[in-house]
């Protein structure tokens, strides 16, 4: 299935409390199309300070019970609504697959970090119900709030 519709999602003001079970946000695809993430931007929206934070993207095998979502924005206004769900909080957490890191970064709180996939290097979510990717906080020397912008195709 052609991945030619681009969407945007953002998670703002999320505290990078280290956890192996609670994603900072999660993107869950549908059964009709694969989701391919091609651009991730992260930075802190807290008062600038010299702290490090480490983040990783891991696979989610269940979607959990979503209590808040960001409605994905289609970059082309003529496109239909995204099939992917951009979840920001849950009342029952999704299941994070252990040892499934497919992307990880360390960044300074003062720096804005961006990762852009080369063509063919996107992070893919299979077209399977409840399959997804979650952004995990895996380490830091101090907590702060961060903002993540994500672009994907489906």
């Amino acid at each position: 299935m052609a991945a030619n519709r681009a969407y945007f999602g953002v998670r703002t003001g999320v505290t990078n409390t280290t956890s192996a079970a609670n994603p900072l946000f999660g993107i869950t695809g549908g059964t009709t199309a694969r989701v391919s993430i091609y651009d991730i931007i992260s930075g802190s929206d807290a008062t600038p300070a010299d702290n490090y934070a480490e983040f990783a993207i891991r696979r989610l095998s269940t979607a959990g019970t979503t209590s808040a979502t960001f409605t994905p924005t289609a970059l082309d206004p003529a496109d239909p609504a995204a099939s992917a769900v951009f979840a920001t909080t849950w009342s029952a957490q999704p299941t994070v697959t252990a040892s499934s890191d497919i992307w990880s970064v360390s960044q300074n709180q003062r720096a804005t970090f961006r990762w852009v996939a080369a063509p063919g290097g996107e992070l893919l979510i299979p077209a399977t119900a409840a399959a997804g990717l979650g952004m995990m906080a895996v380490g830091s020397n101090a907590t702060a709030t961060y903002q993540f912008s994500v672009y994907w195709m489906e």
């Binding site: 720096a111 804005t112 961006r114 990762w115 852009v116 996939a117 080369a118 290097g121």
Partner: peptide
């Protein structure tokens, strides 16, 4: 032949392999 590019404060500082 990178799989991705890392930019810090708008400057490319590294590439990733996939």
């Amino acid at each position: 032949k990178p799989g991705g590019h890392i930019l810090v404060d708008g400057v490319e500082v590294a590439q990733t392999l996939q």
